[in-house]
């Protein structure tokens, strides 16, 4: 499943202004960061899954949440072992394995990671990169060159992922065993794959730049785009909701 790919749809979320979506995703992440309550983090994650369901993206959101959970679990273990505040919770032979402070900090951080990443992924799923780029130029007057760089970088991620898998397949076909359990051997086998990936990426970027130049990239201004991105009532509602959410998250 390509998590950065746009999923066409006609939901309330799809119809929002791309700039509103971008800021909403960012501010949702802020809400997850400002809260100090594990329960609020859980509520925010559940709310985001519900919002994803509204946009018809429940499968993708659950898949992402599952992957982020693994990352969260890793962070949980680290926090649990290294944060030493509060009362000891598990002590064995005078050695304290973790404390109450470590547990609450670990829970908060692991849920925070899931909570902040989910809205960003939803943003990519409900926003076309061209629209995001044009809206940044039209509404916020960001120079086209910079908006293009950012959106193109995101657009290239799935391309490079596919390319990497194809290169990996080519090496598998030559007898390279990537399913080895030896971590160091696996790394030594994967390392050569970055050479063809780097070469093909540079070639793609170079040919893309030449192609853009030949079609008058440098002539593009704010007025060049014909599509308008007006803010509507739904954008206002979204802004109010997200501000309430931040306020609620900060207070609770």
């Amino acid at each position: 499943m390509n998590l950065l790919q746009y999923v066409p749809g006609d939901s309330f979320l799809h119809k929002l202004n791309p700039v509103t979506k971008l800021f909403a995703a960012f501010l949702y992440g802020v809400a997850c960061i400002v809260t100090q309550s594990v329960w609020v983090e859980i509520v925010l994650i559940m709310l985001m899954l519900a919002i994803s369901t509204l946009a018809g993206l429940q499968k993708r959101a659950l898949h992402l949440a599952k992957n982020l959970f693994i990352l969260g679990l890793f962070m949980f273990v680290l926090q649990l072992l290294f944060v030493r505040t509060g009362e000891p919770l598990l002590v064995y032979n005078n050695f304290c394995f973790f404390t109450t402070g470590g547990l609450s900090s670990a829970l908060l951080l692991s849920f925070r990671i899931i909570g902040t990443m989910l809205p960003l992924m939803l943003l990519f799923a409900i926003t076309q990169m061209n629209d995001l780029c044009s809206a940044l130029v039209k509404c916020l007057h960001v120079p086209y060159k910079y908006a293009f760089i950012v959106t193109t970088a995101f657009r290239f991620v799935p391309l490079f992922t596919t390319e990497f898998h194809d290169i990996e397949d080519a090496q598998k076909a030559r007898g390279v065993e990537y399913d080895t359990k030896n971590f160091f051997k696996k790394m030594s086998l994967i390392a050569p794959l970055f050479v063809p990936l780097l070469i093909s990426s540079l070639k793609k970027v170079d040919s893309g730049a030449v192609s853009a130049e030949l079609r008058g990239f440098h002539l593009r201004t704010v007025k060049s785009g014909y599509k308008e991105y007006p803010f509507g009532l739904q954008d206002g509602i979204c802004a109010v909701c997200i501000l309430c959410l931040i306020a609620g998250a900060a207070v609770l």
């Binding site: 390319e163 080519a170 030559r174």
Partner: peptide
């Protein structure tokens, strides 16, 4: 493969 660049890695 159709594209030799995917294969060459040395």
């Amino acid at each position: 493969f159709q594209n030799p660049d995917r294969q060459i890695c040395q």
